[in-house]
Nucleic acid binder design. Structure first.
Length: 382
RNA sequence: GGGGAGAUACCAAAGUGGCCAACUGGGGCAGACUGUAAAUCUGCUGGCUUACGCCUUCGUAGGUUCGAAUCCUGCUCUCCCCA
């Protein structure tokens, strides 16, 4: 089986000291510069952020949606009627949808796995649903994301080898079926969609290699790496990236799913990753945590109560040089919704700034040195 | 002036003889968060201590009792009703 549609990806720069590289990924909704961070918009919204700010201030190039959540609510009929998710949510840039594989993991209490697929109980109303590799391709055709994901099982980070092996067998089976179904169906709205397999295998090199080699046979337009940052030590995550680095094709984008902290992202870039997504900048923002060029801030801490300095003196976002730390703290303490909005905008802008800097330093040839000095600052607790 | 009710930790509010350093909520302080069931969750919140434990607390001064936030008496203060 071969995926028939094409999504052009070209490499534009290569770091001499690591596997980091820059590239351009062409979609029908726009060109994505890699390495890139993709804000997560699970239910058709990047929480607490207007598209206007996402585009003009944060400079997001692609956002995520989630098959499971959108399927349950608002449901595929209204999305189809709207003409796809782009039109429904009024976002004309690229979109990637996760298949719901992560919910197989995070909503494990409400699910049942079979070879056929995964039977869910809706977390909203308890109703029963089946997600099979074919069904999630169908749903993602209706959603109309530019990049759609295969259904996988994302096993917990502490899974033993026997379980991981069994899980991988299921993920491989699902991948093959999903790819066949993708090949035998057409996009609904006149623009191309790409189908990304997901490499699994937990923290076991042999399984990661097996999974990567299996996925590569599909000759797809990009490859995702899943099942990391799910409780395993960070160092093992990096090792897994190194194990599969030589196996995945250099001329196709690689997407590390669900990662991560700013440091994780830079280390991922160094190990050949082109695309990242994570709820961290938005969720942590809503919980009062800011990622800044000088370190992390818990804006709810008392120490910021009378600090009238800007949020991030080196920040590039609109909010950075408008609002003070003391004001943002006040908003959080008072439970004002604007606090979540400002923090979300700041964090996302910071993440997008970070990957832009990474691209610039890859092009300049000093990525590794920059990365190492940056990580020290990023991990400082202010 | 007469009658009634009440004073518990930062606030509110349980507790009416031992299981009480004292429920619970708020507030405060801190922590967590990685393909979002999250504007969420967790811990601490009298003092010393890592902990065990010890010490000082339920308006105040005494008393009863083996033992008191809880029972009795005086005092101080607050609130409500009538005049």
């Amino acid at each position: 089986m071969t995926i028939t549609e094409n999504m052009k990806f070209e490499k534009t720069a290569k770091d001499p000291d690591s596997s980091a590289s820059c590239g351009l990924l062409y979609t029908d909704h726009g060109v994505i510069e890699t390495p890139i961070f993709m804000p997560v918009g699970t239910s058709g919204t990047v929480k607490a952020v207007f598209h206007r700010d996402l585009k003009n201030d944060i400079k997001a190039q692609i956002i995520l949606g989630n098959t499971y959540h959108l399927y349950l609510r608002p449901g595929t009929e209204i999305i189809r009627k709207a003409g796809g998710l782009h039109k429904f949510i009024s976002w004309d840039g690229p979109i990637l949808t996760d298949s719901g594989g992560y919910q197989v993991f995070s909503l494990a209490a409400n699910r049942k796995l079979t070879t056929e697929g995964c039977t869910f109980r809706s977390h909203i109303d308890g109703s029963k649903h089946l997600f099979s590799p074919e069904v999630v391709v169908e749903i993602q055709r209706v959603i109309g994301a530019d990049i759609i994901m295969a259904l996988d099982e994302c096993p917990p980070g502490d899974s033993d080898h026997a379980y991981a092996k069994k899980s991988l067998k299921l993920t491989k089976n699902w991948l093959e079926r999903g790819a066949v179904h993708f090949d035998s169906t057409e996009p609904l709205y006149g623009y191309k969609q790409a189908f990304f397999p997901i490499v699994q295998g937990c923290i076991y090199p042999d399984l990661r290699i097996e999974s990567a080699e299996h996925a590569v046979k599909l000759n797809s337009e990009g490859y995702a790496i899943g099942g990391l940052s799910v409780g395993e030590p960070t160092e093992l995550m990096y090792q897994m990236l190194e194990v599969i680095d030589p196996i995945l094709p250099k001329d196709k984008p690689r997407y590390l799913m669900g990662v991560g902290t700013p440091s994780n992202i830079l280390e991922g870039v160094a190990r050949g990753i082109d695309m990242f997504d994570c709820v961290m900048p938005t969720r942590n923002a809503r919980n009062g945590m800011l990622f800044t060029s000088e370190g992390v801030i818990n804006i709810k801490n008392r120490k910021w109560a009378d600090d009238l300095s800007f949020l991030d003196i080196n920040g590039t976002s609109f909010v950075d040089m408008v609002y003070s730390k003391a004001y943002l703290r006040h908003l959080f303490v008072a439970g004002e919704i604007l606090g979540a909005q400002i923090a979300s905008e700041h964090n996302l802008a910071f993440y997008l700034w970070l990957v832009k800097e990474a691209r610039n330093h890859i092009k300049a040839g000093d990525f590794k040195a920059w990365k190492n000095s940056m990580i020290k600052r990023l991990e400082t607790k202010l």
